[in-house]
């Protein structure tokens, strides 16, 4: 075997790859092409993840829904909750950015992989936090509706069938519906996210495990 590998080595160093040599212009034009590295993908996806929940808030329907707290005296809690939420989000963005900046292709393979994984872990924690917040918001909604006695304006916007229901029954139906919707949404978002990253980082994780195995 040793001999064969030595033979291969001699051959390897002697030969050029049977690939057409690229010209100066070929290489020059490549400098301006877009990178499709996983680091870039992680960056793009993460920015979307940080931005998406806030874009959602800009939709009029979401904002109107949040107004339900106006008449329940939940205002202060809601502001407190928002302050806490944004503090945590900014902490995640800061941590993500500083870890992202540390990634350099000049590192050795193992460090490079571990830094990418760390950056990704920040985003993963952010996602878990966001999903938890969605559930808390849903819970607050349910509580808000439960404590809200003024349903007349809500009912007037709904169809005839709904009007026939007793306010009590309507309230419970609404609470249960929001609860189910919230949980289903959270589960779907979580699944999509973990599948997406799982696929994106499958190769990296495999290679990182391979390198780590060596250190044991």
């Amino acid at each position: 075997m040793m001999d064969e590998l030595e033979l291969l080595k001699k051959d390897w160093q002697k030969k050029d790859v049977a690939h057409p040599k690229l010209s100066y212009n070929d290489i020059y034009s490549m400098l301006w092409k877009k990178s499709s590295s996983i680091v870039k993908w992680i960056f793009v996806i993460s920015i979307l993840e940080f931005a998406l929940p806030h874009l959602l808030y800009l939709l009029p329907s979401t904002r109107n829904n949040l107004n339900i707290f106006g008449s329940t005296g939940f205002d202060n809690y809601f502001i407190g909750f928002s302050v806490f939420y944004y503090l945590v989000v900014f902490y995640f963005i800061y941590q993500f950015y500083s870890r992202y900046k540390e990634i350099t292709v000049l590192d050795n393979a193992k460090n490079l992989m571990s830094k990418i994984i760390k950056t990704r872990t920040t985003v993963k924690n952010y996602i878990i936090f966001s999903l938890a917040m969605i559930l808390v918001t849903v819970l607050l909604f349910m509580l808000g509706i439960y404590l809200n006695n003024d349903f007349s304006n809500l009912i007037s916007e709904m169809g005839d069938n709904v009007k026939k229901m007793s306010p009590e029954k309507l309230k419970h139906t609404l609470i249960i519906a929001i609860g189910i919707l919230g949980v289903v949404m959270t589960v779907i978002m979580g699944t999509v996210y973990f599948l997406l990253y799982g696929l994106l980082l499958r190769k990296l994780n495999r290679n990182y495990q391979e390198l780590k195995k060596l250190e044991i």
Binding site: D11, K15, D16, V17, A18, S36, S37, I38, V39, W41, V105, D107, A109, L112, M113, I116, L200, K203, L204, N207
Partner: peptide, 25 residues
């Protein structure tokens, strides 16, 4: 580093039969 870590395989993946034999002159 690019080959092991950063590179994502392109989506259009056609398995060619015997590229090895033409790799090296």
């Amino acid at each position: 580093n690019t080959a092991i870590t950063l590179y994502r395989k392109s989506k259009k993946r056609v398995q060619t039969i015997d590229y090895e034999s033409v790799i090296f002159k």
